[in-house]
Amino acid sequence: MVRLEKISKKFKNNHAGPERSFTALQDVSFDIQSGEIFGLIGSSGSGKSTIGKLLLGLISPDSGSVYYQNQSLDDVIQNRKGWYRGQCQAIFQDPKASLSPKMTIRELLREPLSLMPEIDSIDYEKHILNWLKKVKLDPAVLDRFPRQLSGGEAQRVCIVRALMRKPEFLICDEPTSGLDVSTEWEIINLIRQMQTQHNLCVLFMTHNLYLLPALADKIGIMHHGEMIESGTVNQVFRNPTKPFTKELVKNTLLNRNL
């Protein structure tokens, strides 16, 4: 469904410093099958977010190619951008900051619907209420503004906004790292549930390895712009090959036993 082949990306260094550029990604390759959840782990600066931006077509790689359904993503973005925006959706780290602050939740939820000509505007309200029920949100939130919502509520709104467009591919960029632990698991379960219901292909990026056994089918570990390990959850957790991964897995397992 989604395939990255030997992707490299450098960024210019805007601040005065000894180096003119730094390498964000170096020869990264992996693929995600449809209906699969791929967990991408790495600390901040490891290149995760760059992968997210590449897949959303917001930046393009220096070398290597990205394929979506076996078509080059560059071509897709150039010729069928509108279609791709419906195919690939994303949710982000800070749900409150990803909602336009001067709009009510109702206006925000009508927005993706307005981009879908097949839905009649008379049915918008019905659709919205349906979705709210699915993600267990009280219809009272509709007249509120983003800043009046809790983090968990705001992330549910973001998820609804993303899924309304009926995407086949969902990118989650640390969707739970701004939330407290109990809300975190509610959102994880919601994503899992939505994934099965809509048969989504999901790229789930996080720096918390412990979220993944319950969620991901395959995982990849990013370190300084390179993918140093990838495979099924069992492979990576049972037989880590690199010292960095061994350390990471050990710490995660320790924490879970606490």
Binding site: G82, Q89, A90, F92, D94, A97, S98, P112, L115
Partner: peptide, 12 residues
Amino acid sequence: KDFILAETVIGI
């Protein structure tokens, strides 16, 4: 800002 990125991704 994040919300501009999010709106771009939604496709407006």
